[in-house]
Design a protein around this nucleic acid. Sequence first.
DNA 1: TAGTTTTGAGTTAGCGTTATCCGATACTGA
DNA 2: TCAGTATCGGATAACGCTAACTCAAAACTA
Lengths: 334, 334
Amino acid sequence: MTKEQHRVTLEDVAREAGVSIMTVSRVMNNTGRISEETRTQVRVVAERLGYRPNRAARTLVTKRTMLIACIMPDITNPYFAEILQGVEDTAWQEGYNVLLMNTNENPDREYAVLSQLDDSTVDGVIACSSRISDEQLIPLLRKHPAVVTINRVLPKDVGSIVLSQRHIGHRAVLAAKYLYQTGRRRIGYLQLVRGSSSFTSFDFVKTLEAEGITIDPAWCRRCPPVWKAGYEQGKMLLEEHPELEAVVGGNDLVTLGLMRAAIELGRKIPDNLALVGADDILISSQVTPPLTTFRMDKYEIGAMASRLLLLRMQGDYTYREMFFPEELVIRGTT
Amino acid sequence: MTKEQHRVTLEDVAREAGVSIMTVSRVMNNTGRISEETRTQVRVVAERLGYRPNRAARTLVTKRTMLIACIMPDITNPYFAEILQGVEDTAWQEGYNVLLMNTNENPDREYAVLSQLDDSTVDGVIACSSRISDEQLIPLLRKHPAVVTINRVLPKDVGSIVLSQRHIGHRAVLAAKYLYQTGRRRIGYLQLVRGSSSFTSFDFVKTLEAEGITIDPAWCRRCPPVWKAGYEQGKMLLEEHPELEAVVGGNDLVTLGLMRAAIELGRKIPDNLALVGADDILISSQVTPPLTTFRMDKYEIGAMASRLLLLRMQGDYTYREMFFPEELVIRGTT
DNA sequence: TAGTTTTGAGTTAGCGTTATCCGATACTGA
DNA sequence: TCAGTATCGGATAACGCTAACTCAAAACTA
């Protein structure tokens, strides 16, 4: 199909149906008072001519794009894929389409993406697990009338928030405490590297210290949130610190990478090394031994983000914070 | 931020800079002849005022949305997630954003999505592994000036094509032949259910018959392309046909589901039951035993689709067909 | 019957850009 | 010096739609 065809406009329909442009517009939008007779007449003509309203023209006057932007760190991580599925399903049900902006865990790209975005492009923004600093993120989000963040706490006026853990790092501390209860003493930590995270291995060590659990900072490693990095960092960590009895991973992917490294190093899991992951992706239940991790409703997190965004887009700027409880699923690695 | 603020327009910049609207427009688009002096002057004012061009207004006159639609059956399937990553990265590099339309393997939803889409919404469409029939799909795609399909052959005038297997079902036949070579005789098939697929278990049986391999049609099952379905259908299949020595799966997810069922039924893999998957997602290499499957460059498939689409969007309507070879990766399940 | 409301549909005026045409300088060469 | 030709930038008219207002005719009301 070439580009040179004539687009069917309201005017064409109006002329053909012998009514004014406004009448056709009203019929198409089901607004205003139109007699049943005229209505069906216009509908028939519009159908016959194959009329489709021009989205840009409509947007220009209504100032609504019917689009929402969803900024994701990495859609090949099943954790985010499932959240995105929830976002898209819910948005779709409400007549919105999703502009996907995948940043590949790259803060520079995330910054570029957010800079490019403005309120003439989308009606709202969902920023999931942002990897950039508050200083960069907040001004960029303030440009938008409706914002929801996932797994990131921002000032209440910026937007609503969906969280899957009460505080950053809360999960890792819980995992370590559980491992301690099961008798492990030398507990390592594969902390996710991201531009933003305020929770560091320093906090990990300190928080657990307060609980009477001593962690050697040398047992903690920073690690990009992908499988390969978990494998590589994990291998180094275990080689340098064979005394480790357990490791807490920042997400399932890196924990699984580390598990592979451990197996290659001859470690027997869980007897020789215990592992706890973080987000219960499908693969985690299917490996041998299956990974102990935290379960949460990822789809529902995404769906809720869409719902909260919709409220804001409809002008309800009440600050809302939804907390999704996560549950430790004990499987074969502990 | 409320909606009531005044948007900075070309007019504001023009007034402030003491030039005409057209001059500002030219500067913003780097078109036309503008003196260096005026150019920087306008740039400074635009920057100070925080001017951002209105995308809808621009689209209305240029007829370009800078958006492409990507229709995906299921982004929680890592196979598609990786393709989507390739699509998005490449589109982004060229200044395009991606409208994600995830259909959750639901043909009705895919039909609805495609019906809603028109050329005033996006500049091009990538339809990945469409689940609807040619009769439905072709007219819907013809509305668009630029189309690329992934894993779906259509008339050459509809759009370009990216394929990861030479013919539908080619992979399954290859897998069966390989299993036969390794001594397996009673080979089952978990065929993916989709609205469209022209390759049926009937073809599977017939094609292999021609190769001298006899398959009992009762060993073939249709199965939705998700893990759970593979597990359930697999369990039924293995219970009803304990004589099976091997099964070919339509994709890795269902094969893995079947593998779980087989293990629960006490089958030893690969001695007691051999398995071949289809798309080498990460999880397949991490389970025990690791899955024998077909490897292909999923990211590159998506990236290529974007590149082919770009060519069409730039007016090069040459039909192109890219074939990505896939390679059998022999691991622990055969 | 005259006044009032309701109903259905037309008219006008943008929304914020860019395409296109056109005019005013300034520069060129003979 | 004077046409000829770059060079720069303004004026105008769309693009396709909807908000807001207007108004005639029909349908009530007292």
